[in-house]
Amino acid sequence: MWYILTHYWSELIQGLGYTLLSSVIALFFSTIIGTMFAIFEVLPNRAMRIIGRIYIELFRNIPLLVIAMFFYVIIPMYVAKIDGFTAGTIGLTIYTSSFIAETVRAGIQSVDKGQMEGARSNGLTYWQAMRYIVLPQAFKIVIPPLGNQFINLVKNSSVLAFVAGFDLMYQGNSIASLSLDTINSYMVVGVFYLIITLPLSYYMRHLEKRLA
């Protein structure tokens, strides 16, 4: 293991960087997109609700790998030249956003209806009430599940390996076949993943306990 670590240090660090970068980008955009579709789902407008529902159900029920490969293969053919990292991150964002939408929707719905009505009767518009009253409370509720989504995101970013996204797993495959020391290479990669995910996961548990 030590040999792998010292010999392929720069590849590993590069992989770690791409994994983190992809996860952070995907987290940022999937939170925005996810929240948007969550709001769609609670809107009084029926058409918007249906759009929200279709988006969420569609991307929740198709494997991330299929989505990522779709973007890697098909988008460059017809739409725009995007590389593996971009394609994988877009796939990751869309996939995760459907889960975040579901989580945030549950959060919004668990905020008392009276809050919205109260805010509206105080002269706030629907959007103002959503923005300043409902969403902040909903987010407080959904922080622990969102944290878990982030952990999943880091783990799921390993699909970038399938689309040459230069992430940790990709480097791991490369190192494993260069060094021909499969198990130790993947052990090192595993340790690198744990360095990110394990502290996060303990922090989330701590947070959950504190909020409960």
Binding site: I74, I75, P76, M77, K81, G84, F162, A164, N173, L178
Partner: peptide, 30 residues
Amino acid sequence: VANIKKFAPKAKVLELSDYAQAMTALKSGQ
């Protein structure tokens, strides 16, 4: 992959998991 790094060190190599994937990637202009 190891060879091309020797013969064309400036090029960036994209490693795919198998030849079907590699051909697909070539077609999509990766």
